[in-house]
């Protein structure tokens, strides 16, 4: 039994924690980690719904108030002609979160069904999900920066909308979901012939 953090080897019914680094050791391979993955996954999915319905930004300009959701923010950027930024925001706050939901669900289901094919591909997918999830936070930071900066009384004021909270929560939950994954379960049922 190997430590998932520092690689130290322990004898089979080993201790609960690694004797070198104190990381929690995953017990036997059909383990309970998938329950955590699903729990955080659904929490993230639920938080993602209000994040798209409610406004992310409230802009007051010369007495007029306008509210925009995540999607409207992207469309607005397109109208301004800043295509590259529109693409960054679209990828970070729409494509990545939705892609992540599909990827996590696919990985979890394939482990539950004990799928044996494509272990390397699925492990690569897991690494990508873990690496890229944090980048969805961009939009929350953009809202924070804009709201701090644009406080010019009458001329223009920007305030955060309620969706900022649920979006941040959704990103955090899906990050936790990806972290709860025990990558060893991908290998456990996998095709070992290539080794």
């Amino acid at each position: 039994m190997g430590c998932p953090h520092c690689g130290r080897v322990h004898e089979a019914p080993g201790p609960d924690m690694c004797v070198r680094c104190g990381w929690r050791l995953a017990a036997n391979v059909p383990d309970t980690s998938l329950q955590w993955v699903w729990a955080w996954f659904f929490a993230g999915l639920i938080a993602y719904i209000p994040a798209n319905i409610y406004p992310m930004l409230r802009t007051q300009s010369l007495g007029r108030t306008s509210e925009s959701t995540i999607l409207e923010g992207v469309v607005e950027l397109l109208h301004h002609g800043s295509y590259s930024v529109a693409i960054i925001v679209f990828v970070a706050s729409i494509a990545i979160p939705i892609g992540k939901f599909f990827a996590i669900a696919y990985l979890a289901l394939s482990i539950q069904r004990k799928v044996r094919q494509g272990v390397h591909g699925r492990y690569r997918l897991y690494e990508v999900v873990e690496f890229i999830g944090r980048w969805s936070m961009i939009d929350v930071f953009v809202v924070a920066i804009l709201a701090a900066l644009v406080q010019l009384d009458f001329a223009a004021t920007i305030n955060p909308g309620i969706a900022a909270i649920s979006f941040a929560l959704s990103v955090a939950f899906t990050m936790l979901s990806a972290q709860s994954f025990n990558p060893k379960t991908i290998w456990a049922y996998g095709d070992h012939s290539k080794t």
Partner: peptide, 30 residues
């Protein structure tokens, strides 16, 4: 162990990209 555990949660580099996006968003305004 603690420093390794908080590694994915320290998001300074993401904040910088956020600044870039925010700059372009307000560039027309001020």
């Amino acid at each position: 162990r603690f420093s390794e555990r908080i590694k994915p949660w320290s998001m300074a580099e993401i904040f910088i990209v956020g600044v870039a996006v925010a700059l372009i968003k307000v560039a027309g305004l001020a």
